[in-house]
Each structure stands twice: as structure tokens, then as C-alpha cells.
């Protein structure tokens, strides 16, 4: 159950997608999402799908892993698709009781489902090919200008990288504690809702205690290494754009421009 969570998981590799600067990848992903929301026709969706497929091919990530990431949001996808199917006004194809299925509804439902799935797969591609550290580094650098407005960018990105860093640790810890309590006959799967909520106490108490303990230890360890915030802090790996970054970003910009143009002409 817990091992199915793929949030923020990173598959190491050396493909072009892995070697791109994290900033380019973040920009590309944002551009891609904007493109998805502007796409309104088969042609533009086709372009977006082609982009995604190329991205997956280049990254070498198993398509299976991407599809698996869709599982948790399957319900939302189906829900929006069904809503759109029945509640889009237009040319009626079939009708029963209060439900009407329209031609436009079918299209919207299909595109909605496609849009959400592609959006999720696109962002997963980013986290699959970018290590959490690189990701927060990239974000920090991209948000850098906000420092002028007194936004604590460094602190926020530090918090984010610590949080990301500890997700797998805490999941592992939860797994361990669950196993230990199961070994003493704890039952998390049966009984009423109240019983199940109560059954969580033996997991949550040790989990919180260990999270606080870890936080304490981490703070001490950081202090020992003279951490004092972002002021004057330099980086071991300084982010630098390479030719490939400009090339890929240029290609994306061109594709987004064509999608926007297509949308403008109602294609």
C-alpha cells in the first residue's frame, strides 16, 4: 500500500532529460502545462501528446511507471470526465431521464481526461528525471528575484528539500512501525470507521516521536556544520545553462507558439 506512493520519486539516469538544467525542466513543464490548457483541438492535443511521448522516450523512464502515477488520481479523472459528459450543452445524441449526452460533451470529456492525465504524466516526468535536490536548487534559482521583495526564498527551498528528503524516510518508518504493530496483532483493515481511526494511534504516536527526534538530530547536525541560513552561502554545484538547454527550451517555445496560434484560429 505505502510502496505505491511515487510522489517525488526519482529514477537516476544519464539521458538528455536527466542532464538538462533543472531550471530548464521546470520552465518546460510550466510551459507544457500552459500549452495543455490552451490546446483545444485534435491537432494541438496531438502536438502535446507527441511532446510527452518524445519526452518519455528521451528520458528512458518506463511508461509503466508513469501510468502507475495516474492511479491515485484515476477517480478525479473519471469524475471530471463523467461530469463533462453529461453537463455540456450542445447537440444531443442520447437522452434518458435528466441525463443528456451531447456531441460536445463527449469531446469535452475526452479532452478533459486527456488533459489531466497528460498534465500529471508531464509533471511526473519532471520528478522522475530530476533529483529532489536539483529540483529545489532550480526552484530557488528561478525564484531568486523574489528575494528583493523580502521573500525568504532560500529558507523556503531548504524547507522543501528537507521535506522531500524525509518523505521516503518517513514512509519507511511508517512501514516499519506498522509491521511491528501488526506483529503484535494490530488490525488496520477491519472494524468500524472509529475502530480503524483508533487503530492508527499505535502508528501515529511512535511516528510523531521519531519525526521530532529526527528533526532535532538534523538541526543539531546542521548547527554543527555551521549552517546559518542563505546569507553568503555558496553552492558546490552551480547551475549553468548549456547549449542543450537553449535548444530544448527553444523547441518548446516554438511548439507552444504553434499551439497558441492554432487555438487562435479555433483549430
Amino acid at each position: 500500500m505505502l510502496k505505491d506512493i511515487t510522489l517525488g520519486q526519482f529514477f537516476p539516469g544519464t539521458s538528455l532529460a536527466h542532464r538538462l538544467d533543472p531550471r530548464s525542466k521546470i520552465i518546460i513543464t510550466v510551459v507544457y502545462i500552459v500549452g495543455l490548457f490552451c490546446a483545444e483541438s485534435f491537432v494541438s492535443y496531438g502536438l502535446m501528446a507527441a511532446l510527452l511521448v518524445t519526452g518519455v522516450k528521451v528520458s528512458g523512464v518506463a511508461p509503466k511507471a508513469l501510468v502507475k502515477g495516474l492511479k491515485p488520481v484515476l477517480f478525479i479523472i473519471c469524475f471530471t470526465a463523467v461530469l463533462n459528459l453529461f453537463y455540456t450543452p450542445g447537440e444531443i445524441l442520447a437522452q434518458f431521464w435528466v441525463f443528456k449526452i451531447t456531441k460536445e460533451g463527449i469531446f469535452t470529456a475526452f479532452f478533459m481526461a486527456l488533459r489531466i492525465s497528460m498534465l500529471i504524466m508531464g509533471t511526473f516526468l519532471l520528478t522522475y528525471t530530476t533529483s529532489p535536490i536539483a529540483l529545489t536548487d532550480g526552484l530557488e534559482s528561478l525564484l531568486g528575484p523574489l528575494k528583493k521583495m523580502k521573500v525568504p526564498v532560500h529558507e523556503l527551498s531548504m524547507m522543501m528539500s528537507i521535506a522531500l528528503r524525509f518523505i521516503p524516510t518517513l514512509i519507511e518508518e511508517t512501514d516499519k512501525i506498522m509491521s511491528a504493530q501488526k506483529a503484535r496483532g494490530a488490525d488496520f483493515e477491519s472494524g468500524s470507521l472509529l475502530d480503524r481511526a483508533k487503530a492508527l494511534v499505535p502508528i501515529l504516536v511512535p511516528l510523531f516521536i521519531s519525526a521530532f527526534r529526527r528533526a532535532d538530530e538534523l538541526a543539531v547536525a546542521m548547527e554543527c556544520r555551521c549552517y546559518h541560513g542563505g546569507e553568503g552561502r555558496t553552492k558546490l554545484h552551480v547551475l549553468r545553462y548549456h547549449a542543450r538547454d537553449y535548444l530544448v527550451m527553444g523547441a518548446y517555445a516554438a511548439i507552444l507558439a504553434s499551439v497558441l496560434t492554432l487555438a487562435h484560429f479555433g483549430l
Partner: peptide, 12 residues
């Protein structure tokens, strides 16, 4: 009966 490694972390 299974006693895990560092079982003290499961006390609640």
C-alpha cells in the same frame, strides 16, 4: 512472535 530491530521505537 516477532521482535523487530530497535523495537523501542514502536512504544506508544
Amino acid at each position: 512472535g516477532l521482535v523487530f530491530q530497535y523495537p523501542e521505537y514502536q512504544l506508544f
